[in-house]
Simulated assay, not measured.
Amino acid sequence: MQGRDVAIVGVGQSDFGALYRQKGVRQDPYALGAHAMRQALNDCGIDKSEIDGLLVSRIGYQRMGDVLGIKYPKVVNAFDGAGRMSGIAVQYGARLVASGAADVVACVYANVGRSQSRKYGGDASGGAAAYDEMYGMTSPGAYVAMMYRRYTHLYGAPDDALASLAISSRRNAAHNPVAVMRNEIDTATYLNSRFIAEPLRLLDYCLINDGAVALILTTMERARDLAKRPVRIAAMSSMGELTNFYTSTDFFHHACAHVAGDIRNQSGLAAKDVDCLQIYDNFTPVTLFSLEGFGVAPQGEGWAYLKENGTAYDGSLPINTSGGHTSESYMQGWALHVEAVRQVRGEGGGRQVKDCNTAQYICAAPIVTSHLFVGD
Rank of each mutant, 00 (worst) to 15 (best):
R229L: 10
L154I: 06
G53D: 05
A255C: 06
C356F: 05
N282F: 04
D204M: 12
L215G: 07
D15G: 13
R232I: 11
P140W: 00
Q22P: 01
R4P: 00
Q266P: 00
R351N: 08
K228M: 11
Q332I: 02
D28E: 07
V274N: 10
G113S: 11
N111F: 05
G349Q: 12
Y109H: 15
S248V: 03
F251I: 03
S248T: 09
E339L: 05
T189C: 02
I233S: 02
G3T: 10
C276Y: 13
E339Q: 09
R150W: 03
S86C: 13
K228W: 00
S329Q: 04
G100F: 06
V56P: 06
T152C: 14
G122T: 04
L242M: 14
Q360H: 13
T358L: 01
A271Y: 11
S327C: 13
M37Y: 08
A157R: 01
S238Y: 08
A257V: 01
T369G: 04
L203P: 10
I263A: 03
G24K: 02
G3Y: 11
A7T: 08
Q332F: 11
A304P: 00
G81T: 10
C256E: 02
Y109D: 02
A78N: 08
G136H: 10
A365S: 14
K119Y: 00
R149E: 12
K71S: 15
F251D: 14
G65V: 04
D5L: 09
G17L: 06
R264F: 07
A78T: 05
A223R: 09
K23E: 01
A89M: 15
L202E: 07
S267F: 00
R229G: 00
A102C: 11
A223S: 13
L242F: 10
V9L: 07
A270P: 02
A260Q: 02
A130Q: 05
L162M: 10
T219Y: 03
F289N: 12
R264H: 08
D103A: 04
Y135R: 14
E308N: 12
R351L: 03
V75E: 11
V274I: 09
G261R: 03
G261W: 07
D160E: 06
G69E: 08
L291E: 14
Y143K: 08
A335M: 10
T249Q: 14
A235N: 00
R95E: 14
A359V: 05
P177D: 09
H337F: 10
S237F: 01
F294T: 10
K272M: 14
G127E: 03
N183W: 02
M239S: 13
I279M: 11
G65H: 14
C363G: 05
A94N: 03
P366Y: 01
A31Y: 01
A130S: 14
R114D: 11
Q278I: 05
R21M: 08
